[in-house]
């Protein structure tokens, strides 16, 4: 009883936080069931309306929504798979090995985080154009496979990784790569999960680069396709809200699946064993 009382404030804090986080979403849900005209009215509608199916049909017709959803999924899955391997390897190398030029590599990684993307767009575009990669998915995936944010995240995660584990694997005769895949990666599962969540979302929501690269509507990814609903003097807000809402669902699913890895005790058990 006393314990429950002590925990009550925690629940209260979390409830307030949750409310602040989801109220805008609830409004998106409501907005996607009204006409755009209704969204300009005062007071704003507070209850769901009856336009959901019409909005959905228009969304599908104007943006070929199901197709762009598949496009986005293909790009994000391929990107996440490869980028996470590259980031984890590089982060591990930087955290656990001492070699000449290590500081330089870390500095270079951080530098690519520090430079505003906007000034790199034109030269990167020129490169893609001269490679003939305009309007291709490799142009969305390859240049950003090495991701500074991910490398830095994994480096920080591996810093405190117990060397004893790595050493014992080596003494058992495992190769460096095998040690990495069999010993290090499984123990670092929570951090890998965080990396995968981050990587998937960043590719899924990526907008400016795909907009510059993709030139035919059948190749559009979600944000680029939704952007076509924004016109010069006409914005289809209810369609946009519905599209954004549907675009969010796969991300939530990814989060819920991967956050299962956030369970204490993996590391403790590993050190003991």
């Amino acid at each position: 009883m006393t314990q429950t009382l002590k925990r009550l404030p925690v629940y209260l804090v979390l409830l307030v936080g949750a409310a602040l986080s989801i109220i805008p979403f609830l409004w998106m849900v409501i907005a996607s069931t009204h006409t755009t005209a209704a969204l300009f009215a005062t007071p704003l509608p507070l209850l769901p309306g009856g336009e959901l199916w019409k909005n959905l049909a228009r969304l599908q017709q104007e943006t070929n929504f199901s197709q762009v959803m598949v496009n986005s999924l293909v790009v994000a899955v391929i990107y996440t798979a490869f980028s996470c391997v590259v980031s984890a390897m590089c982060g591990y190398g930087l955290a656990k090995f001492r070699f000449r030029g290590r500081g330089l590599v870390l500095g270079a990684v951080l530098l690519t985080m520090m430079i505003p993307m906007q000034v790199l767009l034109v030269p990167l575009f020129q490169m893609m154009a001269s490679l003939g990669w305009v309007n291709s998915y490799q142009a969305l995936i390859l240049p950003f496979l090495a991701n500074a944010f991910g490398i830095f995240l994994m480096r920080q995660a591996f810093l405190d990784f117990p060397d004893s584990l790595i050493e014992s694997a080596r003494i058992d005769g495992a190769g460096e790569l095998k040690t990495f895949y069999r010993i290090v990666m499984p123990v670092a599962r929570p951090q890998l999960a965080a990396l995968m969540i981050y990587t998937f979302i960043s590719q899924w929501n990526s907008f400016i680069w795909p907009l510059l690269m993709l030139n035919t509507e059948d190749k559009y990814t979600l944000p680029v396709a939704l952007n076509t609903m924004i016109g010069l003097s006409r914005v289809d807000y209810s369609g946009l809200m519905l599209g954004s809402l549907l675009a969010t669902l796969p991300l939530l699913l990814v989060f819920i699946i991967f956050q299962k890895q956030f369970v204490s005790g993996l590391m403790g058990g590993a050190v003991k064993g």
């Binding site: 391997v85 090995f97 001492r98 000449r100 270079a108 990684v109 460096e176």
Partner: peptide, 22 residues
Amino acid sequence: ARSTAGRSRPGYWFVLPAVALF
């Protein structure tokens, strides 16, 4: 024990893909 001294070669190989892509 942030890094295991003397293991420079594997270190290069782990950072190579990222460095090459950059």
